[in-house]
């Protein structure tokens, strides 16, 4: 299927224009001289400068990154365990409930997840702050990690683990030396997914954060409610830039790895 008709070309062009023009406008106007975000008044980077002076935003950014690193790491560990249990655990009591609890958070409206966690934290008298956000984020992102990792595990040839056991590994060694290296790409993408989900989250963080810990999305949301501001544009531009660089780097790295593997294979074929 490689015959692009005019219809395909038009729909792709319009579609990608729709996806990218809003972001482009956002970026362009972060360099606007004027406070008005809709009228171009000349190039300037002053909003970036102002952003760098804004203690509140910087603090929130720091909290957000801290929360994201902690929760995504914890979620990766728990999610990988959950995936392993789901795929390799065999039968155990309450397995259906377990798999239900893994999948439910994926489709649960954020308002409900946030509300229920908040009520729990209040119920047990846990002060809201960084810890509660980390707990909340870990809970829903571990489910995403588990889905990503288990989709890799189901295609994983079980006899590899058995071979490792057969050659003298304890089950833990077999996991560390054989399973983990092979599923590592899935685990890493699970971590990245959890990290982004945590960075992005507004609703659950709003419910579970306290006055001592405000995350960047919460800060942005309360600023944006009052209307459009060039400072937010500047902040958005920075965030978009980071993500873009990240995604492009990741895809280049994986592409290079693929090319290298192909070269190795060819080199190997020559020496046969």
């Amino acid at each position: 299927m490689t015959r692009l008709s005019w219809f395909n070309v038009v729909s792709l062009t319009l579609g990608f224009a729709f996806l990218y023009i809003p972001m482009l406008i956002l970026i362009i106007f972060s360099f606007n001289e004027s406070k008005l975000v809709t009228v171009w008044a000349g190039f300037s980077t002053k909003w970036y400068g102002e952003l760098m002076q804004n203690e509140a935003f910087l603090n929130a950014a720091w909290v957000t990154v801290k929360v994201a690193v902690m929760s995504s790491t914890l979620a990766t560990v728990l999610g990988t365990m959950a995936a392993y249990v789901m795929v390799r655990g065999g039968r155990f009591m309450g397995r259906t409930l377990f798999s239900g609890m893994i999948y439910a958070p994926l489709v649960m409206p954020e308002v409900i997840t946030g509300l229920s966690l908040l009520l729990l934290f209040i119920g047990i008298g846990l002060d809201r702050g960084v810890l509660t956000i980390v707990l909340a984020h870990t809970t829903f992102s571990m489910c995403y990690v588990s889905v990503v990792v288990s989709s890799r595990l189901v295609t994983f040839d079980r006899s590899l683990e058995e071979a490792a056991l057969d050659l003298g590994c304890s089950p833990a060694e077999a996991f560390r030396l054989v399973t983990l290296p092979i599923i590592a790409p899935a685990v890493i993408s699970g971590w990245l997914l959890a990290f982004t989900l945590s960075l992005d989250d507004l609703v659950i963080a709003s419910f579970t954060s306290g006055p001592s810990a405000t995350t960047l999305p919460i800060k942005i949301f309360s600023a944006v409610r009052l209307g459009v501001s060039p400072e937010i544009n500047a902040l958005s531009t920075i965030m978009i830039a980071i993500v873009t660089v990240g995604v492009i780097t990741a895809s280049l790295v994986s592409k290079r790895a693929m090319v290298r593997q192909k070269q190795e294979e060819q080199a190997a074929a020559r020496t046969t």
Binding site: D157, S159, L160, E162, A163, A164, V178, P181, I182
Partner: peptide, 9 residues
């Protein structure tokens, strides 16, 4: 093993 089960990594 029937499938050889060589460690690919």
């Amino acid at each position: 093993f029937q499938s050889y089960a060589l460690f690919p990594h």
